[in-house]
Design a protein around this nucleic acid. Structure first.
Lengths: 130, 130
DNA sequence: CTTGACCTTCCAGTGAATGGAATCCTTATG
DNA sequence: CATAAGGATTCCATTCACTGGAAGGTCAAG
């Protein structure tokens, strides 16, 4: 499979796929014409990467997860541990976003949002940092 | 006030403050020795920037907000619109993370987490690919 | 044979800082 | 007055995870 098909199937831009090869996350084969030739395993990894990345896992997190995925002698406990760590990261991220959301939505509610210049959003933001 | 004092008062690193000057968000005066000399208005803007950035506003959002802040004839509706857009971004991100959290915590529960290599977490992630 | 879609590499730029080197200024102490 | 500390300056490079674009090679259809 060529990079265009893989891009369509995984939803990742071809640029990004080449970048992932650059940094060693995948190693597609090459056809005689120099085109990258992707196996099913490359496709799986790329889909995995797309999912994990879109959820805020860093590239290095992904690298660790892929290593576990490819290590057939690892214990499921190892995977579970990493998954749990990632769960905690997700929870922390959600909490952080939720806090932002609460503050901001409170401000938005207070703002009358009309033609007048007076706006609680800005006056609150202008308060000295605490 | 010198940059060190401003950094302590606003909680922003001096590097970041210089960067904000670089990109034209603030324009502190200069003392005869070449040191930046910050007015109260610079301090306010920097505190504003720190808070707005921590709420997920982009630098360009901040630039727009500062312009609005300094424009005493602007309508609060303009500010509210920007804040609302940002709220929506935050909400989308939370929903996405929540979905991942649900999936992952379900998988973690299913994984026996022992010495055996068989692990539902990875096998599920692999098939979820696509 | 040409067109156009697809592929390649390489170099540069993004956002939002951050790190580090080299140098300059200020202040306190011996 | 010398010196050492701590703080300030500039400039250049690096980070992360891509993204854009140029210049060119490959392939299938008409």
């Amino acid at each position: 499979m060529n990079i265009g098909d893989v891009a369509r199937r995984t939803g990742l831009p071809a640029k990004t796929i080449r970048y992932y090869e650059d940094i060693g996350l995948i190693t597609p084969l090459r056809s005689q014409n120099g085109y990258r030739r992707f196996r099913d395993s490359d496709l799986h990894k790329l889909s995995f990467l797309g999912r994990a990345r879109s959820l805020g896992f860093s590239i290095e997190d992904c690298r660790a997860l892929i290593a576990l995925y490819e290590d057939h002698s690892r214990a499921s406990a190892d995977v579970k541990r990493i998954a749990k760590q990632n769960l905690e990261k997700i929870e922390a991220k959600i909490a952080e976003l939720q806090a932002m959301h609460d503050t901001l939505s409170h401000l938005v509610e207070k703002c009358h949002g009309d033609d007048r210049p007076d706006c609680p959003i800005l006056s609150d933001l202008a308060k000295a940092a605490g």
